[in-house]
Design a protein around this nucleic acid. Structure first.
Lengths: 132, 132
DNA sequence: GTATCGATTTAGACAATGTCAAGATCGGAG
DNA sequence: CTCCGATCTTGACATTGTCTAAATCGATAC
């Protein structure tokens, strides 16, 4: 269980019940929720929270570097509690998104791209998760 | 100038003025248009074309493998006349999307991902295009 | 206790993206 | 010409995301 209040304070954000609910949903939830996923699950602990507050809070958290934001799914941005560099695998059947540790893959040849200043990059893979 | 009629026939799609306009906009246009970009530019040659037809046609073309579809920009899917495997670079300042040839980059380590069956992958880079 | 002030939240309006259904339209076969 | 199937258009609808005005909350001052 993460201490949402502490985390918010460390980022210079006033903790409120609504913001605490949002932080807990993203950080303790599993996976890569959309804003709407967060809204629904935040309402379980804070039933009156509004859509605008969820969006505002998520954007605030992204701005402060507390969570990531990925545009890898059709229709809606997803938020990512993992702020370390990592790659992504998307299961085409289920839509589930999995993190792939950064050091599992090595991308060679970026230095050949003379015309581009690469500030960040990631590998995005699609396919099926094997059932073990 | 691509022969849109021929291309459509080869895919088993009835050529119509609307579909021809859509195909020409995507294939002859530069870059990675959104559906709305295509709608606007298709209306220059076929002023009555409707939004639904543009969406239907684009989805049809994707289904037939004539164009690609990428979810790399926030807010809207982009379509891609380049159906060869390739990577993408996104200019954070302008939002422009550039194709990076497949053989410029080499991704090592995919075979280590035992739990995933990778059907396709690409490297997505963000940053700034250098002015020469 | 109460008034006040700033920050936060809410509700609803709004724009954009994308899908869908119903009716209109088009083109070819008989 | 008529009919029929395919295609197109229009408008409704759901969803995502942003914005604004009004309500609410909390802390401080009196």
């Amino acid at each position: 269980m993460t201490d949402a209040i502490l985390i918010l304070r460390q980022c210079g954000i006033q903790p409120t019940p609504q913001r605490i609910a949002v932080v807990e949903c993203v950080l303790n939830g599993n996976g890569h929720p959309t804003a709407d996923d967060v809204l629904i699950s935040a309402r379980k602990t804070c039933p009156t929270v509004s859509r605008a507050t969820v969006y505002n809070t998520l954007n605030l958290l992204v701005e402060k570097g507390l969570i990531g934001m990925q545009t890898i799914r059709e229709g809606a941005v997803v938020f990512d509690p993992n702020v370390e560099k990592h790659h992504h695998f998307i299961d085409d059947d289920t839509g589930d998104i999995y993190d792939i540790p950064w050091d599992q893959l090595d991308v060679k040849g970026k230095d050949k791209l003379k015309d581009f200043e690469i500030l960040e990059f990631q590998v995005i893979m699609r396919g099926r998760r094997k059932k073990r």
